[in-house]
Design a protein around this nucleic acid. Sequence first.
DNA 1: TCCTGGAACGTTACCGCTAACATCGCGGCA
DNA 2: TGCCGCGATGTTAGCGGTAACGTTCCAGGA
Lengths: 335, 335
Amino acid sequence: MPRRSSGRVTLQDIAERVGVSKVTVSRALREPQRVSETLRLRIEEAIEVLDYIPNRQAGALSSGRSLSVALLVPSISNSVFSDVQRGVDEGLREAGYQVLIGHTGYSILEEERLIDTFLAYGVDGFVLSSTRHTDHAQRLLTRARLPVVETMELTETPLDINVGLDQRAAGRAIGEALIAAGYRRIGFCGARLDYRVQLRLAGWEDALKEAGLSTQRCQTTPRPSSYRLGGELLSAMLERWPDMDAVFCCNDDLAAGALFECQRRRLDVPGQLALAGFNGLDITDATWPTLTTVVTPRRAIGERAASTLIARLRGQPREPCRHDMGFEIVLRQST
Amino acid sequence: MPRRSSGRVTLQDIAERVGVSKVTVSRALREPQRVSETLRLRIEEAIEVLDYIPNRQAGALSSGRSLSVALLVPSISNSVFSDVQRGVDEGLREAGYQVLIGHTGYSILEEERLIDTFLAYGVDGFVLSSTRHTDHAQRLLTRARLPVVETMELTETPLDINVGLDQRAAGRAIGEALIAAGYRRIGFCGARLDYRVQLRLAGWEDALKEAGLSTQRCQTTPRPSSYRLGGELLSAMLERWPDMDAVFCCNDDLAAGALFECQRRRLDVPGQLALAGFNGLDITDATWPTLTTVVTPRRAIGERAASTLIARLRGQPREPCRHDMGFEIVLRQST
DNA sequence: TCCTGGAACGTTACCGCTAACATCGCGGCA
DNA sequence: TGCCGCGATGTTAGCGGTAACGTTCCAGGA
């Protein structure tokens, strides 16, 4: 007894209805110019009538290309990454690729697990949201010989393509901007403490040290970032360093939360305390006062990731390269 | 000349190394208790050594099950849906399923396109974020005979499983709460105007009409929701209806934006104007004043969607059903 | 008239895995 | 001793496509 077929409409069904072989139907779909006009129309009609949906699994198995790409982000709720995702998605969709999203929860072990999973799904490439991976993950990626884009921060040793911005320089730049604005007792508040936050912190220290200022006003926690946490961290800092005149928050969520806490305490921003965030999310331009921040080109990063990946997928030879997408300090009312 | 193999390690490679047939290796992976202990260990070792990654496409093609489920959300940056997503993801991962995310941009046409795409990928089920679909989408889903969960709002006519909350009742409840708090000139501000927002608006009208209050203070726009838009809409409303004493915003983003606008205008909240939002996002509990809102059980919706879907996937017969997950009015400082 | 070449379509053999059924070997029991 | 039953493993035949190569047919040039 033959294996029961799935019941789905297949190429064979179309072929029988039209009276040709299934290869011809397949060709009509993939290389329309290679079948005669009349036949193509009849095939298209049959596809329409029977509601044929190609089986990508079968196609991928046979051709070795799945026309899909994995995008791994640390968190799906963080709009930083949804901007990147939009850029990636748009670029790749145009080229006929489907983007499969996975979220690592900021864990490189989970990233490794997802790389394994998506390799099993036969993706044709990866867009990662970091440059740090487990050894095993690196080995898997290398052995798979797939194009890989590492995004967000820059690295000296990209696996393949690297698209991001100099997080340390950005941290330094906002530090310098605060100093230039006249602040002298500048704090740093950071949550999660992932690699990028550490880089921003290092940049902040660079700036303060160079100006001969103290870098002691630094409040960090491994807890995940949130608005409320921004308030809590600011409270702790105000307690420890009552003389603080400005705070650079490692991201906009913390900065907004800190701002809300200032409002709660009737602390004038920027009169009594200046605040700066990082990323340039929508909220920084909506609060009162609006928040000074470092605007990161997230969408552009996603788009560049897509375009470079497509070049690789189309056969451009593998040759490690970095794309520095820059950043922009935007001074607003909070400083 | 035979087709070039992909170069990947396959079951056959493992089988040869261990000296058994590939079916046995396949069995060792899928039904470990059916192969002898010693052999299983040798197979596991070979898999480890050769870094074997199963080809899911081939497995899915052969077995007819892909162990993946599609989750379609309107927007990926909206944290409402990332909460749902987390619930779905967690539940399904435990059962061995991979969740593939697609975002429709609030368009049912795009939803239709994605349903088509994911059917081509051979997913075993769908979680949709709405109960409204194109006719063609409905036909595709019905013909595919896959389990489908429609989430977020309730419907009288579910395709299969329906998990959500009564959006209209929630709108009505917040309206009643504002009335109970003594407000009489209550406005509504809504963006995007998707189906759920329309239901909330209808509920708000229900409450006001029943109390004999005017429902004229209603400002809506099809533009997508954002913090800034909340400020803009509020400004417009204050201009048109200077006597307004409370506003129900169709979601928390607008409410927060409206709050920021009040701060900008030095308008006391709730003294001069009360504000209420919808969803219960983190920000509502962080601002100053904190925001009254309708807390929706997004995570629970996701989890229930996962558990009911799993039941179906495990063979439980199809029988349309609704799960009302409720909501909670949380009164905070803004009212 | 014959040959040639290319457009249009067909045949074959896989891709890597699994369902279904077949086989083998061995202990236990009549 | 011979047969049965069952656990452990193997054989076969696909799943639904596509790459590579083959065939057919007809126009056009020598």
